[in-house]
Every structure is written in structure tokens, then in C-alpha cells.
């Protein structure tokens, strides 16, 4: 069968000038004997690219993202990220790698009973030693940095509120500030707006876009709403039951082509890729 790289190389878009940041080659992840989380995925993401992962729920978006920073390891295949082979990396190496990768989750995953600023400061745990519990246990300089990150997401005035007293949209912005606290080179976002109302969704997506442009981040963001995806990323990757069924530049893509990712029957992978090319 044709790999995605070959399809891209054979004129799907101009070759990207930048170095690869994330390289999946023939990655397969099995959960038990008959559940395939990822099915023979090969994918290269280069510096500064903003990639949107599309797919129905259960198609493997979260699994793919969690493979990028080694929260899950593949059953077979290789995952290279920022020059580190994730599958063979030791604990220390993985920590160092994760420090360079920000991760924003669907449910924000803040520590609800702690202040907003403390939650942001936890983003710096990777570069300080020892366990911390309570805002005063973080160095002043880090707290000041945290306040700056909070201001970037527009919430510095909420620094000392318990984070669970914020609205969903605000909590997700705090989660973004926490990721920024890592000074990341790569940003992963797993359906960052799936639990938000349309207005907050737009706000958070705009924020992510601005930040990734300003900090020239490499971004992998999974979404399940086609309309949000179109016009947001540089490149759209479609997944269905763990297989990559679409990988195209976002420019010039129309809604119907993308919707094919969602059709349960019909269009198999190669037909779709061919049609788009």
C-alpha cells in the first residue's frame, strides 16, 4: 500500500523546508487482542506546522497524541520526537522530553481545589527539583513567571481564586497557561474545546492559534468538529478506527472532502487520498 509520505511527496503539497519534530513510523498500538488503537501509522510533523487531527470519537486521536510524549507506548513501530526515540527512552530522558512538550486536555485536568496560579506553576515542575504542595513552596521568580503566563491568557486577575471556581473556558485557558509555563517547543491539544460552549470554544481556539504563531510552536491538535478544523490548521490528518485516512494541507480543502472521514461506510483510505490529490 502507499504510505502517506509517498502520497504527500508525489505532489500533494510543496515539500516542507523544516526539520521533522514528530516522526511516527509504522506505529501500531493494540489494546488487548482485538482493539486496535493505532493501526500502522506513519506520520511526520515538521517544525512550526499546525496539524489538526480529525476523527470520530474512538478513532484513536487521544491515543496518537499520548504516544507523542510517551504517556502510552506503541505495541510496534517507532516514535521519534525532538530527536528522542520515545519507545526506548529511559525515565529521565522521557521527563526531559515531556518538559519540552505542552499538553492541553479536553477536561482541562486542573487541580480544582488549588489556586489558579499554583496550577500554572505546576507546569514548571519539570525544571525544578522536589515535590511541591502549596503556592508558597514555589520560588518567587517562578510565581512571577506564572503570573505573566496567566496574563497571556488574560486571567492574571484570577491568580488567587480556586481554579474550580472558574468557568470551563477560563479553566481551559489556565491549562494553556500551565502548558506555556513549560516554555514548550511542541504543543499537543486533545479536543481542547469539546467540553466548552461555542463562544468559549472560539476564544480558546483563537488563543491557541495566536500563541502557536507568536511562539512558533509545532502544534498537534485533535478536534472532532470539521468546521473548527477547516481554516484553523495548516494540515489536516483524518483518523478512522486507528488508521490514517486523510493527510492533506488545509488550504483549499472543502468540507465534503473532510466529511468523508466521518462516513462509517464507503470511501476507503486510498480512494479518499487519491480523490483529494
Amino acid at each position: 500500500m502507499t504510505t502517506v509520505d509517498e502520497v504527500l511527496g508525489s505532489g500533494a503539497g510543496p515539500p516542507l523546508p523544516h526539520a521533522p519534530v514528530v516522526e511516527f513510523s509504522r506505529v501500531t498500538k493494540r489494546f488487548g487482542p482485538d482493539v486496535l488503537g493505532l493501526d500502522d501509522i506513519s506520520l511526520t510533523v515538521r517544525t512550526g506546522e499546525v496539524v489538526v487531527l480529525l476523527g470520530l470519537s474512538g478513532s484513536g486521536k487521544s491515543t496518537l497524541l499520548r504516544h507523542v510524549d510517551g504517556l502510552q507506548l506503541p505495541t510496534s513501530g517507532s516514535v521519534r520526537v525532538l530527536g528522542t526515540e520515545v519507545t526506548t527512552a529511559g525515565g529521565g530522558e522521557l521527563r526531559t522530553l515531556r518538559r519540552r512538550i505542552g499538553f492541553v486536555f479536553q477536561q482541562f485536568d486542573l487541580v480544582g481545589c488549588r489556586t489558579v496560579l499554583e496550577n500554572v506553576c505546576t507546569g514548571a515542575l519539570g525544571r525544578i527539583r522536589g515535590p511541591r504542595l502549596g503556592l508558597p513552596t514555589y520560588p518567587k521568580a517562578l510565581r512571577r513567571e506564572g503570573l505573566e503566563r496567566l496574563d497571556r491568557v488574560g486571567l492574571a486577575d484570577r491568580a488567587f481564586q480556586r481554579s474550580d471556581t472558574l468557568s470551563g473556558g477560563q479553566q481551559q485557558r489556565v491549562a494553556v497557561a500551565r502548558a506555556l509555563m513549560q516554555r514548550p517547543e511542541v504543543l499537543l491539544a486533545d479536543e481542547p474545546v469539546a467540553s466548552l460552549d461555542p463562544e468559549s470554544s472560539a476564544q480558546v481556539m483563537d488563543l491557541l492559534k495566536t500563541i502557536s504563531r507568536e511562539d512558533s510552536l509545532t502544534v498537534l491538535c485533535s478536534l472532532h468538529q470539521v468546521d473548527l478544523a477547516l481554516g484553523w490548521g495548516d494540515r489536516i490528518v483524518g483518523l478512522r478506527t486507528g488508521r490514517m485516512v486523510l493527510d492533506l494541507p488545509a488550504a483549499g480543502l472543502d468540507r465534503d472532502q473532510v466529511m468523508a472521514v466521518y462516513s462509517r461506510v464507503g470511501a476507503d483510505a486510498s480512494a479518499l487520498l487519491g480523490a483529494a490529490g
Binding site: 504517556l71 521527563r95 515531556r98 485536568d109 481545589c113 505546576t122 515542575l125 515535590p131 504542595l133 513549560q182
Partner: peptide, 25 residues
Amino acid sequence: NAAATALKAAGASRLQQIAGGVLPP
């Protein structure tokens, strides 16, 4: 466990994950 996992994803050590994500709640 989600908060602790988020800290893990940020490069926190095991002890840091426990102090920062498990103990507070």
C-alpha cells in the same frame, strides 16, 4: 487521576505528581 497525569505530561517526577496532583484533593 487526570490532574496527576497532566503533571506527568509536563515532565513532573513521580513524587511531584503525587504532591501536586494526588494529595491536594
